[in-house]
């Protein structure tokens, strides 16, 4: 195996095109290097994306946020404006692995590793994040929910790279949250993950809502039926109960060493409701500034 650390997007795309399926782009490498070690993947070329300016850094503007696809979780966690605007996204990102993993793991890697259980992805989907994809065919904007096809597989074409993620400045009354179930408190892969983003009118009615689930299907899924349980309604216990029921119904998980199908389906509803409850608190008129307790 060879390693290359191109300094520009053109160079990276050139290398990836040249070597084809035997090349693998790498951001933080926290999944990829494990796959190398266990022999799950055996690329001939690793293309390190961390030296490419377009994939680094976070821009916070009045129009919204641009998060480089190779930015580490630790840097994302330190970006206070982003945490203020999209606490659910930041908290979900911070749940990826340990402090050590946070030093390397990125949103781009978490998405393109294409695990159904990736923690940041349901939160990004719920928040309506869009990613910029650049490849030999040019540049396109892709909603995050359209990137993962199935376990380990994306919809990206050969030599295409996720360059950054875009999130708008949240409108007044917006709140988002992510909840996950793991058997321990840290270090596990999600058995179920649930991201919710919603917007409340001053009247307290829910104007908009997006719900996404992780680890309950072959890929992270957006569950509009669950969101509709809240939209144009007051988010009372009955509405939240329906959101939970819809989330459970939408789950189509597998039995595996981490959890049973029945368990995942049921807990998907519980977590969707809990995430919605937290998002509602955050959407309240006077959002508390600063970072919430981890």
């Amino acid at each position: 195996m060879e390693y290359a650390a191109p300094r520009s997007l053109d160079e990276a795309i050139g290398l990836l095109s040249q070597v084809g399926v035997d090349a693998r782009p790498m951001a933080g490498g926290t999944d990829l290097l494990v796959q190398l070690r266990t022999g799950t993947r055996r690329p001939k070329l690793l293309v390190d994306l961390k030296q490419i300016p377009g994939l680094c850094g976070i821009d916070c503007g009045s129009q919204g946020f641009r998060i480089g696809a190779a930015v580490s979780g630790a840097e994302i966690g330190e970006c206070l404006p982003l945490r203020e605007a999209w606490p659910g996204v930041v908290e979900a990102t911070e749940l990826i692995g340990s402090t050590q993993i946070q030093g390397r793991a990125s949103l781009g890697g978490n998405l393109c590793n294409a695990s159904p259980a990736a923690d940041s992805v349901p939160a990004l989907i719920a928040a309506g994040a869009v990613c910029t994809v650049i490849g030999p065919g040019g540049r396109r904007e892709v909603p995050v929910e359209e990137v993962v096809r199935g376990p380990g597989e994306t919809t990206l074409s050969e030599a295409e790279i996720v360059v950054d993620f875009r999130l708008p400045q949240p409108q007044e009354g917006t709140g988002d949250a992510y909840q996950r179930m793991i058997p321990r408190t840290e270090m596990d892969i999600a058995i179920v993950g649930a991201g919710v983003s919603l917007r409340l009118a001053e009247s307290g009615e829910c104007l908009a809502c997006r719900v996404a689930l992780g680890a309950v299907a072959a890929r992270p899924i957006r569950v509009d039926a669950a969101a509709e349980a809240l939209i144009d309604r007051r988010p009372d216990a009955a509405a939240l109960g329906e959101l939970a029921a819809q989330a459970s119904a939408a789950a189509d998980p597998i039995d595996d060493k981490r959890g049973t199908r029945a368990y995942r389906s049921r807990v998907a509803g519980v977590l969707a409701r809990r995430a919605a409850e937290m998002a509602l608190r955050r959407a309240g008129p006077r959002r508390v500034a600063g970072s919430p307790a981890s």
């Binding site: 390693y3 650390a5 926290t30 494990v34 050590q100 390397r104």
Partner: peptide
């Protein structure tokens, strides 16, 4: 060797990382 135990923790440019999850070339 898979980033799950932290025994190989080092600081990389003042950032905590697992040295097993980083290529030496990096």
């Amino acid at each position: 060797g898979t980033g799950d135990c932290g025994a190989c923790s080092v600081m990389l440019d003042s950032r905590l990382v697992c040295s097993c999850l980083m290529l030496a070339a990096e």
